[in-house]
Simulated scan of single mutants.
Amino acid sequence: MRVEIWSDIVCPWCYVGKARFEKGLAAFSGRDDVEVVHRSFELASGAPRDGRKTVAVELQAKYGWDDATLKAMEDRVGAAAAAEGLGMRHDRFVTGTFDHHRLLHLARERGLQDRLLDALFTANFAEARPISEDDTIVDIATGAGLDADEVRKVLADETAYADAVRADEREAAELGAGGVPFFVIDRRFAVSGGQPAEVFTQALEQAAAAGGLQTVATAGGDGAVCADDSCDVP
């Protein structure tokens, strides 16, 4: 069985959803036969990798949110992260993620994709590191096991793995993913949003026994999504 997960490095519900999915997978009896592949999805496609603004400044400027609305979103996602044992800082930076996704494709070829994604999530959300900077990216990637020279070579070549990122994003659109995280099991079952762990277990069990692409769960309730650089707010 193959599970494909579309997500973005700066999506807080992708960060939380990955942890919830892994708990759901651990409770699935066929977990040892499951291959997990992470796919690319940019919430702000084409955004520059500059990291000059914090999330708070960017969201308030883009959507006109007042302090109360911003705090409601951050408190909600912060509580969800804490419930999964994850850190969440609110002074993290905004950055384009195209280069990070290109490196995740390199990491997949090296068998290190999951480790790199975890490292990027931790650096961004738990540590608020400036993941827009080359030196920081190289440090994160080498900490996940990648070779520093390979990482720098990919960062310097804008075409490296660019087609792979765009192909992932086209597939997401074809499958109806309007936001992330978006989980597809054997191209038969789709789960949208950072759902509770038991929803993922149920989806895996149903996919093991049935065919045909079906939506098991969609965003809402506990399963929030990020779309167009914004996230569900209660």
Rank of each mutant, 00 (worst) to 15 (best):
I5P: 11
A190H: 08
A162S: 09
F125R: 06
A190K: 10
P234K: 06
W6V: 14
D222M: 13
H105Y: 06
K18P: 11
A19T: 07
K23I: 05
A162M: 02
V151F: 03
V57M: 10
L117W: 10
V10W: 00
G211R: 14
R108Q: 14
T159L: 12
D134G: 13
T136N: 09
S230M: 13
R187A: 10
A81Y: 02
S132P: 09
A26Q: 11
Q113H: 11
F189N: 10
T95G: 02
A26L: 03
D99M: 06
A209F: 13
A26E: 06
I9V: 14
A81R: 08
T201S: 08
D229A: 15
C226Y: 15
A148K: 08
L106M: 04
C11Q: 03
R39P: 09
D163L: 10
V138G: 09
C11K: 02
D118S: 15
V165S: 02
W6M: 10
D222K: 14
G193I: 04
A19K: 11
L104T: 15
D114M: 12
T95Y: 06
G85K: 06
F189W: 12
T54I: 00
M1A: 11
I185C: 08
Q214G: 13
I140W: 00
G78R: 04
A144S: 04
R39W: 02
T218H: 11
R31I: 02
F21G: 13
H38Q: 11
M1W: 01
D168Q: 01
G85D: 00
R187S: 11
Q113D: 12
I5F: 08
E133I: 07
A156R: 02
S230K: 14
R39Q: 09
V34F: 01
V184G: 11
A56R: 13
R188W: 06
A173I: 12
